Computed example of a mutant assay.
Amino acid sequence: MNILVLGAGYAGMTAVAAVARRTRGEDVRVTLVSPSTRFTERLRLHQVATGQELADLRIPKMLEGTGVEFVQGWVTAIDAGARRVALADGRSLEYDKLVCALGSVADTGMVAGVAEHAVTLNSADEAARLASRLVAGATVVVGGGGLTGIEAAAEIAEQHPSVRVVLLSRGELGAMMGAKARTYLLAVLDRLGVEVRTGVSVTKVLPEAVELNGGELVAVDAVLWTTGVKVSPLAAEAGLEVDGRGRIVVDATLRSVSHPEVYAIGDAAAIRQKYGVIHGTCQSGIPTGAHAAASLAREVRGKEPRAFRFRYVHQPVSLGRRDAVIQFTHADDTPARFYLKGKWAVFYKETVSSSPWKEFAILKRWAQLPLSLKGGRATRMA
């Protein structure tokens, strides 16, 4: 079986490592496609945006010993009928099973001028563009009051106290949290000097200003855009059934409802649970990658894949390097009673941000364990 995985984010990397472990010794070829050899720690891009250096994680190095083949290239088309993927350099890759893990990026087409004049956290390179503009006395507007915008605003304010940081949001900040956690979050932003303005919308981004609803202009030296996301159009163009946001509609096992040889995971998938469609986060993306791998391994052995079940656990929010707030949640992501703040929350958030690599290392070690033939089948030796 030829398994092709598109996208090397948290979900895609989990999927290839897990499927390599689960199908070791079977007649399976696993290939991972990504345009870059460097893995992007999206959980930490707000740190890159302030000039902090992250570990240089290289995908080929991370995959050593797993048996996964890495192909560097841009995917330009999926031919679902021929089960073939086209790359920008003219190469094509065939598959028996496809895992779409292409993720999402900030939508810069929602508001005029964003694409031309704002910076996003879509990549480490783009985040670094903002860091170069954080000079003393500069004004930075963060557009979007979601968790990404909050983390970025706090990080900038802490790392560059001489920079004026203005956080603009249509809704209430931290509305997804309980009252106590939200109160703490707002207090930390105030202590850091972040100017919070809620109930406002950006209608246009200009070279040196943002225009708000009502016509007000706010002079800026840089704009960081964190609101709204979009997914790759490749699935829709290939004829796969997608929802109104372009995400692949999947069944309970994470297979495309229109093309069951295609699995969709992470932000690329519209995954329905009892409480609704899950929203794209690392928290949900990694389990989808692991589940797709388990399902593929079952198919390799002639078994039916099982249904995916997921419950939310927390909303971890860093507020610079020295503060954080963690809202624990019910299964449907609504706030539960308990929350963490301060140094314990910092420790918790750092543990969460580092956990994907601990899990990946475990999967990789399992994939590298020797095999022995037992009863005519390849089995793992503990």
Rank of each mutant, 00 (worst) to 15 (best):
Val5Gln: 00
Gly9Gln: 00
Ala15Cys: 12
Arg21Ala: 09
Gly25Val: 11
Thr31Phe: 05
Gln47Ser: 10
Gly51Tyr: 06
Asp56Cys: 08
Arg58Ala: 02
Thr66Ile: 12
Asp79Thr: 01
Ala80Gly: 09
Ala82Lys: 12
Ala88Arg: 13
Leu102Arg: 01
Gly103Cys: 13
Met110Phe: 08
Met110Leu: 14
Ala112Glu: 15
Ala112Asp: 14
Asp125Gly: 15
Ala127Met: 06
Ala127Trp: 03
Thr139Cys: 11
Leu147Ala: 14
Glu151Val: 12
Ala153Cys: 09
Ser162Lys: 14
Val163Met: 09
Ala179His: 10
Leu189Glu: 04
Arg191Gln: 09
Leu192Met: 07
Val194Tyr: 07
Thr203Val: 10
Glu216Trp: 05
Leu217Trp: 01
Ala219Ser: 10
Val223Phe: 10
Val223Gln: 09
Val223Pro: 03
Trp225Gln: 05
Ser232Ile: 03
Leu240Lys: 05
Glu241Gly: 06
Asp243His: 08
Ser256Arg: 07
Val257Glu: 02
Pro260Gln: 04
Ala268His: 00
Ala270Glu: 12
Gln273Arg: 13
Ile278Leu: 10
Ala293Ser: 08
Ala294Cys: 01
Leu296Gln: 01
Arg298Ile: 03
Gly302Ile: 11
Tyr312Asp: 04
His314Ser: 15
Arg322Asp: 13
Arg322Phe: 04
Tyr339Gly: 14
Ser355Tyr: 15
Pro356Arg: 09
Arg365Leu: 11
Leu373Met: 12
Gly375Leu: 13
Ala378Thr: 08
Thr379Met: 14
Thr379Gln: 15
Arg380Gln: 11
Met381Tyr: 06
Ala382Trp: 10
